[in-house]
Design a protein around this nucleic acid. Structure first.
Length: 239
DNA sequence: GACCAGGCACATC
DNA sequence: GATGTGCATGGT
């Protein structure tokens, strides 16, 4: 079932909140809890967040296994590891030279500013931590927010390519909106709740896999029923 | 062989 | 602020 693009819609702030929560509940009913982030420790979540940049998770899993096998999944070991050999272990996740540099940058930062302790780092207030993360080489908005939400359990909504794709195709906003705009949109219309932000983002990624770059919609997406009701509306939500 | 994947830094206009 | 490019392996 393919709909013409762009979809456009209108509604009050209250309507939007209701609709977003309806979509959340629907996805949760269909897919169930996603148990994110997959990782046994705070550090593993953070490394995973860097490794999964523009990369499928199955490729990241191979690298995580490599790092565990080599006993490199600790701040101390990563801090002592040389970049070249580290990069070789990262091969299957792609961009391995860049990602080795990114991981080294993050670990150095934690040593330099938090005495090598993620627990110390976790005491930092959310917005200050976000700013701090963004100052590290290789950590952009999505990676910073993934780390904030999934490693440090700070209440922040993670936006990714799927978030923009799924919700723009459902008429909430245009796909080319900035990261900041989309994040503000969700955080303005959702309760400020770590558990909700955690599960919602994971569910969006789950269903987002059904939306490829070029095909407007896929019939496998459980949100298609919602879309049927949305065609022919005339105004976008973000102005 | 083409296309895509849970981005980001950097150069250029 | 918007747009283009390099980074790279692995699955469909």
């Amino acid at each position: 079932m393919i709909f013409p693009l762009p979809l456009k819609r209108s509604g009050s702030s209250h309507d939007i909140s209701k609709e977003l929560l309806k979509i959340y509940v629907h996805l949760l009913e269909v897919y169930g809890p996603q148990h994110w982030w997959p990782g046994e420790s705070r550090l593993e979540v953070i490394i995973g967040a860097i490794l999964t940049q523009n990369t499928v998770w199955t490729n990241v899993e191979k690298v995580i296994a490599n790092l565990k096998r080599e006993k490199l999944l600790s701040l101390r070991a990563l801090n002592e590891a040389r970049e070249r050999p580290l990069a070789m272990l990262l091969r299957s996740s792609g961009y391995f030279n860049q990602k080795a540099k990114k991981i080294k940058s993050f670990v150095s930062h934690v040593y330099l500013h938090y005495n090598g302790s993620l627990k110390t780092m976790s005491q930092v207030e959310t917005h200050a931590m976000r700013k701090d993360l963004l100052s590290i080489y290789g950590i952009g908005p999505e990676t910073a927010d993934s780390i904030l939400l999934y490693a440090f359990e700070k209440p922040i909504f993670v936006v990714d390519a799927y978030t923009k794709r799924v919700f723009s195709r459902h008429g909430f906003f245009e796909e080319n909106r900035s990261y900041h705009d989309v994040q503000t949109f969700f955080m303005r219309h959702l309760p400020n709740d770590v558990g909700l932000f955690n599960e919602f983002h994971a569910l969006i990624v789950r269903t987002g896999k059904y939306f490829c770059r070029r095909t407007p919609l896929c019939e496998k997406c459980p949100l298609n029923d919602h879309l049927n009701q949305l065609v022919n509306k005339t105004k976008v939500y973000i102005e």
